[in-house]
Each structure stands twice: as C-alpha cells, then as structure tokens.
C-alpha cells in the first residue's frame, strides 16, 4: 500500500457512542470526474494521537474497478475531514 492522503467526500453512520462507520466515499480523479467507492467491510479501526492530533484510521475493503481492494481511510476529529490515507 502507498501513502496517498487525499481529501475525500464521504458518507458514514455514527453509533450512539459516537463511533463513525464509513459507508462510501467519493474522490475527484485527475480528469475532474468523481469516483465513488462503496465500503463493503471495515477490517479494523484504530485511533492515533500523533502530535496530539486525534485521528481514526479505518482499514477497509471495497470494490475498485472490479477488484476487491484493501485501503485505509483517516478521519480527523478536530476538523471532521475524511482522507483516503493508503491504497
């Protein structure tokens, strides 16, 4: 997997305890079109506090261009932004 760290648009649902579960995300490709990826499974969720900045890292599985791929999403708590971290 390569570090990508690109901002994405995403849809997630939150549990009563405030834990987000991403459902799908949308990323702008080089030719200015949007590509939507549905997350079929969340493999793991870890919290990191590097430099005191809280982020949740989701290791997910989903279908991209007909292939089942594993990728990581990051959610930054202080800004509520989603990133495609690694793919």
């Amino acid at each position: 997997m390569k570090v990508y760290m690109r901002p994405i648009e995403s849809i997630a649902w939150f549990t009563q305890d405030g834990i987000p579960h991403p459902l799908r995300y949308r990323i702008q490709t080089e030719d200015q079109t949007y590509k939507t990826v549905k997350i079929s499974r969340i493999i793991s969720r870890v919290e990191e506090k590097i430099a005191g900045n809280r982020m949740l890292i989701f290791r997910c599985e989903g279908e991209i261009n007909g292939l089942l791929k594993i990728f990581e999403l990051k959610y930054e708590l202080s800004t509520c932004k989603w990133y495609l971290y690694k793919i």
């Binding site: 590097i50 430099a51 900045n53």
Partner: peptide, 13 residues
C-alpha cells in the same frame, strides 16, 4: 519534532 510528527500524520513522505 512536533512539526515533523504532525506532517507525517498528514501524509508527508
């Protein structure tokens, strides 16, 4: 160090 750690977290190589 703080700057470096933060940048790494933000995806800097």
């Amino acid at each position: 160090s703080w700057e470096a750690a933060y940048r790494l977290q933000q995806g800097a190589s």
